[in-house]
Design a protein around this nucleic acid. Structure first.
Lengths: 219, 219
DNA sequence: TGATTAATTATTGTATACGATCTAACGTTG
DNA sequence: CAACGTTAGATCGTATACAATAATTAATCA
């Protein structure tokens, strides 16, 4: 099943165990997961559709490395869509949703405390996806998923701040708006949160590393 | 070479020559285009990623038939995103872009006059895509593409008005805002245009036709 | 006869084989 | 010695073959 390979690769990308630009050889990936190239190709094409991977004809698949322009666009899109989603979530949020979100924040803190920065970042992204799922709007959810995933690559390339504490701070502020079921507040906090993330990027010049993929996927 | 099959099927769907729910047999499609199932599968998966077809495990691919809920969501999303895109386009539009858009409107009128309603509808959708391309924002453009395509299926299922004249009227109003490079006006006109399209759908819960009893009972 | 089950057919899922294209190494030539 | 063309190896693109699952028809029994 291709979905397993998609999930595995995606998680590795989102946790920054696979760097932008890394080549994903079909044979190599197939070897790791014990499937034929047919399945691998299907998985890689799926990842290409969500812009996590770029496929160059007769050259192969690579982890996408978003340009500076793409980085701006992604965060502009997030600044438009996610505040609306947060407002929708605030309207219909329930007690168990709040519990789930708090659990997420806890896991994020735990990962951060244990020094696993990649995991912490991935969880931080999942927090936004959880909000989208609370909003119960499939179209927006898919858009947010796409944007959050791409943001992970962008952060891998362009993040300049050492701290990620601002992150949990914003998330805490969002939780307050949610518990008070205040759509207006959720909208505004989310917008400023996205703008803040956007401003945390260094968009001058930067080069990206590349490493072996086989051991990165063992996790 | 899968892109050729994707383009062909997509065009057929957008022009309503393929109805929602239609089965797309791999052998049959491969026969039509003279390629093997390998390519067809790749094309169908690509179309599934843009929600134009649904793939059911071990059962095959079918033209998607969006639910009423999906229809609402798609037009809510368009109402959020497309006004912003129209405003961006109004800011940076150039003379040749205006010419291109006018050509499009002309083609749309011609198709309408010749009675080819499917073609006219497809062109009407392409008009929105042209605006997105003028806005020169790849992320938004992809979202708009996805939404416009899905709208075509939604209209095939739920459109209730006989006339599509309102369409060209709105498009003319947009052109005026563009020629005057008035982002504010473009934003507002586009928003009301989308809302108008949304209101042209019959989304009363009554229908949602189960074409066969087998389909109805499977759910 | 009607329904349930077995057998057949058709269609999809996956693996493999072969041809095409790119990459890299090597040797030739100016 | 550098630049270029050639050749060998690796990797991708596509077709085909086989396996697994679903759909259809035939057969059996109450």
């Amino acid at each position: 099943m291709a979905s397993r390979i998609v999930a595995g690769l995606q998680q590795a990308i989102l946790e920054h165990r696979l760097a932008p630009g890394t080549k994903l050889s079909e044979d190599e990936v197939g070897e790791v997961y014990g499937v034929s190239r047919t399945i691998v190709r299907s998985a890689l094409q799926a990842l290409a559709h969500s812009d996590l991977v770029t496929i160059e004809k007769n050259r192969g698949a690579f982890i996408a490395s978003p340009s500076i322009g793409e980085a701006h666009e992604v965060f502009e899109a997030r600044a438009l869509i996610e505040p609306r989603v947060a407002a929708m979530a605030a309207k219909r949020i329930e007690a168990r949703d709040i519990a789930t979100l708090n659990t997420h924040i806890g896991a994020e803190h735990a990962a951060m405390a244990s020094g696993d920065k990649g995991k912490a970042l991935a969880l931080s992204g999942e927090f936004h996806l959880e909000i989208a799922s609370v909003a119960a709007h499939d179209v927006f959810t898919k858009f947010v998923q796409s944007l959050v995933k791409r943001s992970s690559l962008i952060i891998a390339l362009y993040w300049k701040r050492a701290d990620t504490t601002c992150e949990s701070h914003s998330h805490q502020a969002l939780m307050k708006a949610f518990t008070e079921r205040d759509p207006q507040a959720a909208d505004e906090i989310m917008r400023s949160h996205i703008v803040d993330l956007h401003s945390g990027l260094d968009l001058s010049l930067k080069q990206n590393p590349a490493k072996s993929i086989a051991d990165a996927l063992r996790a």
